Structures are given as structure tokens and as C-alpha cells.
Amino acid sequence: EESQDIKALQKELEQFAKLLKQKRITLGYTQADVGLTLGVLFGKVFSQTTICRFEALQLSFKNMCKLRPLLQKWVEEAD
């Protein structure tokens, strides 16, 4: 059922947002740094506010889903 899928996805997004924040802090990056690095990787800079709202799960579900693969890549590249 679709609502189950969405619930599962939301849970996954929550966990990912936590992971992103932990990783960012561990590596000593600011939210603005992450936004700028996305610009380098994908040619589209994201504001500190956007990263902040992603981490706080304050973006729309659709936006969270759109941003996630980009931030996933950041997490992979950041090591």
C-alpha cells in the first residue's frame, strides 16, 4: 500500500538526515559548506537554510526526496 511506502520513505529520510548531520559535524563542515560543495558536485548551490531545513526535516516530502540523492553523494564524497 502506498501510504506504507511513504511512511517507510519518511523514516528513511529521517535516518538519513540524522546521518548527514552527524557526518557533517564530525568532519567539521558547516551547513553552508555542504550547500557550496553540492554546487561544486552538481552545479547547483544550495543555501545554508536549505541544508538546515533538510536536517530538521522541515522541507516538503517532495523536496526531501529530490535533495536526498544529492546529499547522499555528498556523504559518500566527504570521506
Rank of each mutant, 00 (worst) to 15 (best):
S3L: 14
E76N: 14
R53K: 12
L38D: 01
T50W: 05
F54V: 02
G28T: 01
F46Y: 08
G39I: 04
T37G: 15
G28D: 01
I6V: 01
L57Y: 14
Q48Y: 13
A56M: 14
K11L: 09
E2G: 14
L20S: 05
L67D: 03
L19M: 14
E1R: 13
L59W: 05
Q58G: 03
A8P: 15
T30Q: 02
A56D: 14
Q72N: 04
F16I: 01
K21V: 06
P69S: 04
R68H: 00
Q72L: 07
K7P: 10
T50G: 03
T26L: 12
Q15Y: 00
A56N: 13
A32P: 01
L20D: 00
L19A: 04
N63K: 14
A32D: 00
R24W: 00
G28P: 00
A56S: 12
C65D: 14
T30G: 02
F16A: 09
L9I: 06
L38M: 14
R24Q: 05
F61R: 05
K11T: 05
K73N: 05
Q4K: 12
E14R: 13
K62T: 11
E14Q: 11
K73E: 03
L67P: 00
R68V: 03
D79S: 06
K66D: 04
L71K: 05
K18V: 04
K21Y: 03
E77A: 10
A78L: 01
K18S: 14
D79G: 07
V40K: 14
I6Y: 15
G35L: 01
L70W: 05
T30R: 08
C52Y: 03
L19C: 14
K66V: 06
T26M: 08
G39C: 01
N63C: 07
K21I: 00
E12C: 06
K18W: 09
K21E: 00
L70M: 11
V40Y: 08
D5N: 13
K7H: 09
Y29T: 01
L67C: 06
A32K: 14
L27S: 01
I51W: 02
C65N: 06
E12L: 07
K21R: 09
F54W: 01
T49Y: 07
G39W: 01
K18C: 08
L36Q: 15
E1G: 13
L67I: 08
Q72I: 10
A8V: 13
L36H: 15
Q31G: 05
T37L: 07
S47R: 04
E14K: 15
F54C: 04
V34Y: 03
R68M: 03
S60F: 00
Q58E: 14
L27M: 09
S47G: 04
K73H: 06
K18F: 08
K21T: 01
T49A: 12
T37K: 13
G28A: 00
T49R: 12
L27E: 00
Q15K: 02
A8R: 13
K11Q: 13
E77D: 10
K66N: 14
L9N: 10
Q4Y: 15
T26F: 15
Q31A: 10
L9Y: 09
E14Y: 13
E14T: 06
L9A: 11
K73P: 04
S60K: 01
L59S: 04
V45E: 14
F61S: 04
T49N: 10
L9F: 07
E76Q: 09
I6P: 12
L59K: 05
E12F: 15
F42G: 10
Q4T: 12
K7A: 12
L67T: 04
Q48K: 13
Q31W: 13
D5V: 12
T49Q: 14
Q58L: 05
G43N: 06
K66Q: 11
K62M: 14
Q10R: 14
K62R: 09
Q48R: 13
T26N: 15
S60P: 13
A78I: 15
L36T: 15
P69W: 00
K23L: 03
T26H: 08
Y29M: 14
A8G: 09
G43Q: 06
K73R: 10
K73F: 03
K44L: 00
N63L: 06
E14P: 02
Q15R: 09
L57D: 04
M64R: 00
A8K: 07
I51T: 06
D5Y: 05
